[in-house]
Design a protein around this nucleic acid. Structure first.
Length: 158
DNA sequence: GCCAACGTTGGC
DNA sequence: GCCAACGTTGGC
């Protein structure tokens, strides 16, 4: 049941805000603050045990730093109801929360970050959302093939 | 810090 | 429902 990996994802975060280092230290964390409907819908489709590529955006270099796992499926993001939070959404109703969060766990850190440049240059990753021009979505599905390929690059350099 | 890309909002 | 204005993302 929950042990089966059903899907793969890529999640973007700015490491200055929330990075793989922090997830590794804590072991588990909350993926919150997503305020885009498409990304939210993907989050709601996540299942416990799904694996994801942890992508560092606005970093030097930007790229995939490692792997995480979904440990709790989507639930209402508490920050949408907190007027003091930058993620506060006054239009979201408690009876029908607009935004979701998931909990994530640490799986592995690659020996090196696979930069966006490398991802773009790899012929086996054509079509992956993160390498497509103009794709800013912070949550995207990844095919099993692409996921395995990036993990292989991260572990073995290529 | 700049700016292209693109999502959202709101006037009409 | 159109679309201009505005805001955000994120590479560079």
């Amino acid at each position: 049941m929950g042990a089966l990996v059903s899907a793969f994802w890529l999640l973007k975060s700015e490491p200055d805000v929330y990075g793989l280092d922090e997830l590794e230290r804590a072991g588990e964390g909350v993926w919150e603050g997503v305020r885009n409907y498409q990304a939210r819908n993907f989050m709601r489709a996540m299942r416990t045990g799904d694996l994801f590529l942890f992508y560092h955006s606005n970093a030097k270099p930007s790229g995939v730093a490692g792997v995480g796992r979904i440990v709790r499926e989507a639930y209402p993001d508490p920050f949408q109801f907190d007027p003091k939070s930058k993620y506060y959404d006054p239009a979201s109703l408690a009876s029908d929360p607009r935004w979701s969060a998931v909990n994530v766990g640490f799986v592995e850190r690659f020996p090196r970050v696979i930069s966006l440049e490398e991802l773009k240059a790899h012929p086996g990753l054509v079509g992956m959302a993160v390498v497509q021009k103009g794709t800013r979505l912070s949550v995207t599905p990844v095919s099993a093939e692409h996921f395995e390929r990036v993990v292989a690059m991260g572990r073995f350099g290529g």
